[in-house]
């Protein structure tokens, strides 16, 4: 995880992460917020469900893809947090056909 060094007064905004309300520093990117929030991956790769998180933080690697305000596959490192923003991590969803694993 990443931590804030309290070098500037960071006004909090209220956002939703995976449906849950969370307070977050204002003026940081969605990807930075996720890195500071937890060690959870930002998504699972659609190719074989491997956990992935931001790598480059400058919009070059396309690993920090999350759903923002209903739009999927947004580069979290290029989007600044705004109040009431809805962020959903693109994690693997259990299939109705299997016992918690991926369907074929």
């Amino acid at each position: 995880m990443f931590s804030l060094i309290d070098l500037c007064a960071a006004n909090a905004v209220g956002v939703y992460l995976d449906g849950e309300p969370v307070q977050a520093p204002a003026r940081i990117s969605v990807a930075a917020f996720l890195l500071m929030h937890s060690d959870q991956p930002m998504r699972h790769s659609p190719v074989n469900d491997e956990p992935r998180s931001a790598f480059c933080m400058i919009g070059n690697c396309y690993e920090c893809l999350v759903e923002i305000d209903g739009h999927p596959n947004q580069q979290g490192c290029l989007v600044t947090l705004t109040d009431q923003m809805r962020i959903v991590r693109q994690l693997r969803r259990p299939s109705v056909f299997s016992k918690g694993g991926r369907d074929e």
Partner: peptide
């Protein structure tokens, strides 16, 4: 997850004032 470029460390420091634990 947890592996990043040095540029990412720089970006996190400059933009978010964030450091790795």
């Amino acid at each position: 997850p947890g592996v990043m470029s040095v540029g990412a460390a720089q970006t996190l420091l400059k933009d978010a004032h964030a450091i790795a634990n």
